[in-house]
Write a protein that binds this DNA or RNA. Structure first.
Lengths: 293, 293
DNA sequence: CTTAATGCATCAGAAAAACGAATAGAATTT
DNA sequence: AAATTCTATTCGTTTTTCTGATGCATTAAG
């Protein structure tokens, strides 16, 4: 049994797969074409499998090569992450962040796990709450950063992380969205339901009934997962096992909200800056959230 | 900015960290002590950080070294996994597996994701159901493999995957287990609740009331997560946000069940064998379930 | 049909890296 | 004080890997 292949070979493999050509990959890697060609030959021999089909113009992945691709991506990504984490100056100190409950199961775990791996000495405190009390807490000096939804586009200062529509969500396994009247879930204590959700249904002449009332997003998730009701959620917070209802099915977007990042006015620290940057990256469109143990 | 470090260096780093000594690691790696010593010096220079404290007797990880350790483990593990996946003969064909709902959120995702990465051409069909209909389906030729709970220790043939106690489970965030009478959840259509759960409570003189009835394990999860009831679950199926109730809190184990693997008598295939092996590994005690995207 | 161009594989020499054996140094044990 | 244990270092030597040049196959153009 041969030794396991080297990460350098995987890096070259990845470059070739992405460039579609040995020559182009070589340029990108700062090596000669012959060097890269030999590397890939070595890798293929090590694994005992042909990874590329040689075409007249460039190369193309074989089935086995496609199987290796995700591994190569993850390995090189991990090594890079490890290197930047280790090379960067260690930060420490407390950081207090407020974020909507909606993200507690989707983006938040990704942010926290990556951040705490990179800066293990930073003590992150998370506060899950709605926008208004979140900003109040920040004004009271209890938070360094706050991620909040805002429906009025301008108004406050703060940085726009992304703009997301609020959409109707149903379960993969149930068909609650086909019922008439439409069973919906609402919050006890938010007038946003009245103002936007119900207004949107009224506007489109969709009859509904309140089938579920609660005061936590967790309740919304449970309601939609169990097939009890249709719920309105920001697109990126749709939980597993559920899907967005499209316009073709007769469900318009409820509204469009901005996800905003607010920073405390009482000074900052390197740790706060770093977490703010991590949040920015996590919300950047196209950032696939990858949660790892 | 220096190049990212090489996986070979990480492998040596890992060996040293685990052996606690350069000399011992060198032996394990089949290299000389001087070679490994130079490798680690290169890695430290590459990262610009001291990774080990040199002790009179061996070496010990520094804080930065400890930070690198999980990366090194994952990188070497991934490369090894990639190599075995790529080197092994590709399998294909259908495999039909039956498994209790209980595992649909814990061990099952781990089994399926690892297996499908390794054998992407195998089409796995999963059937979630209780033991009796599962075995019926297998007898009818609808399943190749079935994982089932068995309470009578002997009786049938089949392979024991592990033996697990059924324990009472409560929520981290609620305190339903302190209520009197104890709120419990039961299945509609299983006499196991009567025979074991309730018998166990009676035996210990614990007063209870049925607070939740359903017919799916998903319902049990929802009941315990929301603080509605205490439920009895196999230890390895305890969902996030919940914890086992201990004897010290007055809750005895309900019973002990064997997790069994049954195979169809109508022949087998390499793909079935491979999945059976993957299941065996996943249930092997100490196998930490690692789910990845 | 010939000629140029593109792109991968291969070869030989050069450069770099890794290795093994021996040695030095530090700290501990006997 | 001597022996032991373990790491760092040094120095030839071997092995690996890279470069630059060349060969070969296929496509595009003249």
């Amino acid at each position: 049994m041969a030794h396991p292949p080297d990460s350098d070979l995987l890096r070259s493999f990845l470059a070739i797969a992405e460039a579609g050509s040995v020559t182009a990959a070589a340029e990108r890697l700062g090596r000669t074409q012959s060097a890269v060609s030999m590397q890939i030959a070595r890798l293929e021999e090590n694994l005992g499998q042909q990874l590329f089909d040689r075409l007249p113009r460039g190369v193309a992945l074989t089935a086995r090569g496609a199987q290796l691709l995700p591994y190569a991506r993850r390995v090189t990504g991990l090594i890079e992450e490890a290197a930047t984490a280790l090379r960067s100056r260690p930060l420490d100190g407390p950081v207090r962040i407020g974020i909507p409950q909606d993200y507690s199961e989707t983006v938040l775990p990704g942010i926290l796990s990556a951040f705490s791996r990179r800066y293990p000495a930073v003590e992150v405190t998370v506060r899950l709450d709605y926008s208004v009390p979140q900003l109040k807490a920040m004004a009271a000096g209890e938070l360094d950063l706050a991620v909040v939804f805002e429906w009025k586009p301008a108004g406050t200062k703060g940085e726009i992380l992304c703009v997301e529509p609020t959409v109707w969500v149903t379960s993969d396994r149930h068909a609650q969205h086909l019922q008439t009247p439409l069973p919906i879930a609402v919050y006890f204590s938010s007038d946003w339901c009245q103002a936007n959700m119900i207004a949107s249904l009224d506007r489109h002449g969709i009859p509904y009934r309140v089938a579920f009332e609660c005061d936590t997003v967790g309740g919304f998730f449970a309601a939609v997962r169990s097939g009890l009701a249709v719920v309105a959620l920001s697109r990126s917070t749709i939980p597993d096992g559920c899907r967005e209802l499209t316009l073709a099915e007769g469900f318009p977007a409820v509204d469009s909200s901005s996800v905003m990042l607010h920073r405390s006015s009482r000074g900052t620290s390197p740790a706060v800056d770093a977490l703010a940057e991590a949040i920015r990256v996590a919300f950047r469109p196209g950032a696939f959230t990858e949660v790892e143990g």
